[in-house]
Design a protein around this nucleic acid. Structure first.
Length: 885
RNA sequence: GCGAACUUGGCGGAAUGGUAGACGCAGGAGACUUAAAAUCUCCAGCCCGCAAGGGCGUGCGGGUUCGAGUCCCGCAGUUCGCACCA
């Protein structure tokens, strides 16, 4: 109770100063303008973009309806809204839709923990979050709202899947899942904690299931090449995707088993290895295979110790991270393989760091040329043969001890490769392998096909029927959508679709015999891989309408968290290609521009018992903090990403009620550059609230006391001229800042013009001042509108009564004649150190400027007795004297 | 472990290779007020100095340049991702 009292009484707060008549009353103003925009259908656009204006599609990543909007959302959508409103003012037809990524695990968790049906839980959450978004006054086209958990959406997704299936982009194959043997259920990687199920605590196992895969690897090359065209994406995201796709050139090498044991399947008589370093084959000291490799499985059947080792590896689960972070370990199978070039055999080890999903699930170990192999060799006393001599080293005293040499050099100890460069050796080794018929040069991709099957209820049903005679049969179009049954229970572990008494039992569409529905549902990443396209015609009977999709796409500006840099963005890029191939749209890339915003963080607090406290339970006292009410001391922890578990969250609803939507928006946009993390602070919000009030007062003073002017008088005072110049410089600076996404700089420039306008109140009677002040006040209304739209409308209505709304005004244009500086300050340096400044006319002649710089008293004093060897002059900026001695 | 990025006053940050610290927050001094809040004015990187001025300074160590927060190399710390969280 202590924590809500201060949050819900605006009268107690600095944001609501006593005399209501003189302050900006956001409580009544904000809903009023929201209604006005809504009634005028300002943010509505047609499915096919209008021909009279250029189109602009702004999209923020749609939220998961967790229940409450959080500050991260506010920041994300405020950022998008700035762009949407700015582009609208620049004359674009702006598509700015909103929807819900509504399938997913949390709804099922809520069902199991609290007995709420996932649908009820989700729809309630959506309703609550929608209300909050609407109170924030975002310029969203709500007619286009979609929720992925409604059949209207996921039914179209089923159609897409069937089209992909028809086009050969879908495959069914075996793959591994995390299996909780106690709960008898499949676990997500995040539900596996230290190798144990999060609920049962039982050690998990890997289990193989037959699953659906989308063949994203068919587009590996195109997805890689396409990155080059994405010049409005952050470089780091492109780099990350490039690495993720992971094109590498190397060789496939067949190692035949030395003395294959009796009874071994002939398929297993040789092990295929992928390597990017065929040049180092002579440095081989072992062959390592993945624990899931067929030969390892065979070894497990022969030898209980091998089986035990494999079982242990499987307890690491399916996450690559867990596998790679685990201590590197191996098991010698006793099998040996022949070296292709040497008359020698090498041991075959099962190693826990070899991934079945990459390459061929086997590698040859060259300890001298790979650090991981070297560590492994040291651990198991395997030989280390140096094969690459680093440039400038002498073979006689070169040895590999603790560090492998991974660079290029000259080949040694390598038979026919000796003396060649690394690059030559690579080519020669491949040529020799090809001649011998035991290998060949290939391009390998790190990217794997996308497994989309999930053994869960709250997702889009996969529209396939399994028939004993006909196999996997697609659900016919006229039976779509395959709807989720609502009458399910969560009292048993596992997938409720599987337990449902009737749902899965259907007749085979082909032969009519009894068959069963696929009970797996899609990965929720599928839902979010095409929603941007659905937004262009959200109510259509087909997944897309070509004129709408082709007209609006690509998304001109996509905005969301950096955490989606790889998976979501790559899947959406893949879907775009697959949808193009199946005729659903005709663009190559979904997102022409991408911006990744940072997180919202906050101090964290703990009481003396070590319990986390919410910010509103804590009161700052000097350097420390105490618990509100009890005065009990509180430990102030580090600033961290807002999270429920640390309780360092601030609820947007509480902030809107206390300070208003504009203040919340202004604050999340003010200080930090949008791509970086920002810290939410009490002081910061109240500062933003103070600014909103101040701006309102200053503009209202102009509206009430300065008579409207037709045009600028011919003769104006220097102060008025200065204000006009500040005004136009601000227009130019804010425009540039918004174009470049440096919204915090735009905010700073608006602060400056506000101060300049306030300052001008003192010289109100000077000639031209009335015009200049009205001009600046109007500019401020227009420039702050993308960030604080309600305040902007309210100020504008006072300043220009009877005219249309700010939201209908064009963006202001800076007058170039008022942008040029009348005088410049030039820094004067000696040997790069600042020693004074001089004033100069813009573009003043070099000789005159340098002469005056040299004569500047402090500069002259320091130059005395020194010989000037060079005079550097950068026009309008700097003079630098380089002295000798 | 692998991949990617980030690091500037007390704090958030600004800065086409050209006067580091714009703008804001917190702080100090003052004005207004019976008082407080609100508002307004001024100060403010650190060190030395009455001042003029000087020294140091953009995570750490090197390099390129007349000149480096900015470019290059190495290191440290922090953050994000790692394919079934969204």
């Amino acid at each position: 109770m202590t924590r809500t009292s201060s949050m819900t009484q605006p009268a107690n707060t600095p944001a609501a100063p006593a005399p209501a008549a003189v302050s900006y009353d956001f409580q009544s103003v904000e809903p009023r303008w929201q209604k006005a925009w809504d009634e005028a259908s300002i943010f509505t656009v047609p499915d096919v973009p209008p021909a009279d204006r250029p189109k602009y599609y702004v999209l923020e990543m749609f939220p998961y309806p967790s229940g409450q909007l959080h500050m991260g959302h506010v920041r994300n959508y405020a950022l998008g809204d700035v762009i949407a409103r700015y582009k609208r003012a620049r004359g674009y037809a702006v598509l700015h839709p909103m929807g819900w990524d509504a399938f997913g695990l949390p709804a099922e968790n809520a069902a199991r923990e609290r007995g709420v049906h996932p649908q009820e839980w989700t729809l309630n959450n959506i309703a609550a979050m929608r209300t909050t978004l609407q109170r924030l006054g975002f310029s969203l086209n709500w007619d286009r709202e979609i929720a992925t958990c409604l059949p209207d959406y996921y039914g179209k997704q089923q159609k897409l899947f069937l089209d992909f299936l028809q086009a050969g982009l879908v495959e069914r194959r075996e793959s591994w899942v995390n299996w909780d043997p106690v709960d008898q259920t499949v676990l997500a990687n995040e539900q596996v904690v230290d190798g144990r199920g999060w609920r049962s605590g039982a050690p998990i196992e890997k289990k193989q299931l037959s699953q659906w895969f989308l063949k994203i690897t068919d587009f590996a090359e195109d997805l890689l090449d396409g990155l080059k065209t994405l010049d409005r994406w952050p470089d780091r995201v492109r780099t990350m995707q490039e690495r993720w796709i992971g094109r590498s050139e190397g060789a496939r090498v067949r190692f035949s088993l030395h003395a294959p044991p009796h009874g071994l399947d002939t398929n297993l008589n040789a092990v295929e290895v992928f390597t990017t370093r065929p040049d180092t084959l002579f440095g081989m000291s072992f062959l390592a295979i993945a624990p899931d490799h067929p030969l390892a499985e065979w070894a497990g059947k022969q030898n209980p110790e091998a089986a035990a080792f494999i079982a242990e590896c499987r307890r690491l689960g399916t996450s690559v991270e867990a596998v790679e972070t685990a201590e590197k370990r191996g098991f010698d199978t006793g099998l040996r393989v022949n070296h292709p070039f040497l008359d020698q055999s090498f041991p075959v080890w099962i190693a826990n760091f070899v991934l079945m999903d990459y390459g061929t699930g086997a590698l040859f170990g060259c300890p001298s040329g790979d650090q991981r192999d070297l560590d492994f060799a040291h651990k198991y006393n395997l030989p280390v043969t140096p094969v690459v001599l680093p440039p400038g080293k002498d073979q006689a005293d070169f040895a590999i001890t603790k560090t492998a040499f991974t660079g290029d050099g000259t080949m040694i100890n390598s038979g026919f490769l000796d003396g060649l460069s690394t690059e030559e050796a690579r080519r020669e080794a491949i040529a020799r392998l090809e001649d011998m018929g035991v290998g060949n040069g290939i391009v390998n991709w790190r990217l794997r096909d996308w497994g989309v099957s999930r053994q869960r209820y709250w997702g889009c049903p996969i529209p396939v029927i399994h028939c004993e005679s006909c196999g996997a049969v697609p659900v016919p179009d006229d039976q779509l959508p395959v709807k989720l049954p609502e009458d399910v229970t969560f009292d048993k572990p596992g997938n409720p679709l599987d337990h449902h008494p009737t749902w899965k039992h259907v007749a085979c569409p082909k032969c009519g015999k009894p068959a069963t529905r696929e009970t797996d549902t899609f990965d929720t990443f599928v839902d979010s891989s095409w929603y941007f396209a659905r937004f262009t015609a959200p109510h259509a009977d087909t997944p897309t309408v070509r004129a709408a999709a082709d007209g609006w796409l690509a998304v001109d500006q996509y905005i969301g968290g950096i955490e989606h840099a790889i998976l979501h963005l790559l899947y959406a890029r893949f879907f775009t290609r697959a949808m193009k191939k199946t005729g659903h749209l005709d663009v190559s890339e979904p997102f022409a521009g991408l911006f990744t915003q940072g997180m919202v963080s906050h101090e964290s607090y703990k009481d003396s018992a070590g319990n986390w406290l919410y910010p509103e339970e804590v009161e700052r006292k000097g350097d420390g903090a105490v618990k509100r009410g009890t005065e009990e001391p509180v430990t102030v922890g580090r600033v961290e990403k807002m999270s429920k578990s640390k309780r360092n969250t601030v609820a947007p609803v509480a902030i809107i009620e206390r300070f208003g939507a504009d203040t919340a928006r202004w604050f999340v946009l003010s200080d930090s550059p949008p791509e970086r993390d920002m810290e939410w602070t009490e002081a910061g919000v109240s500062g933003a609230a103070r600014f909103a009030q101040r701006l309102f007062r200053i503009v209202r003073t102009v509206a009430q006391t300065v008579p409207a002017q037709e045009s600028c008088p011919a003769e104006i005072a220097p102060q008025a001229d200065a204000l006009r110049r500040a005004n136009h410089r601000t227009i130019a600076a804010v425009t540039e800042a918004l174009e470049g996404f440096t919204i915090n700089v735009a905010v700073a420039r608006i602060h400056e013009l506000t101060s300049a306008l306030a300052e001008a109140e003192k010289t109100a009677d000077l000639p031209g001042m009335a015009f200049a002040r009205r001009e600046a006040a109007r500019t401020l209304c227009l420039l702050c509108a993308p960030m604080m739209p309600h305040l902007a409308e309210e100020m504008y209505a006072q300043l220009e009564p009877g005219t249309s709304m700010v939201v209908e005004q064009p963006w202001p244009e800076a007058d170039p004649s008022l942008l040029a500086a009348t005088q410049v300050t030039i820094a004067v340096q000696i040997m790069g150190k600042l020693r004074g400044t001089i004033e100069a006319a813009p573009d003043e002649d070099k000789d005159a400027v340098v002469a005056r710089a040299e004569a500047e008293p402090n500069v002259a004093r320091l130059l005395e007795g020194k010989r000037i060897v060079k005079r550097v002059h950068v026009p309008n900026r700097i003079v630098n004297f380089v002295t000798a001695g």
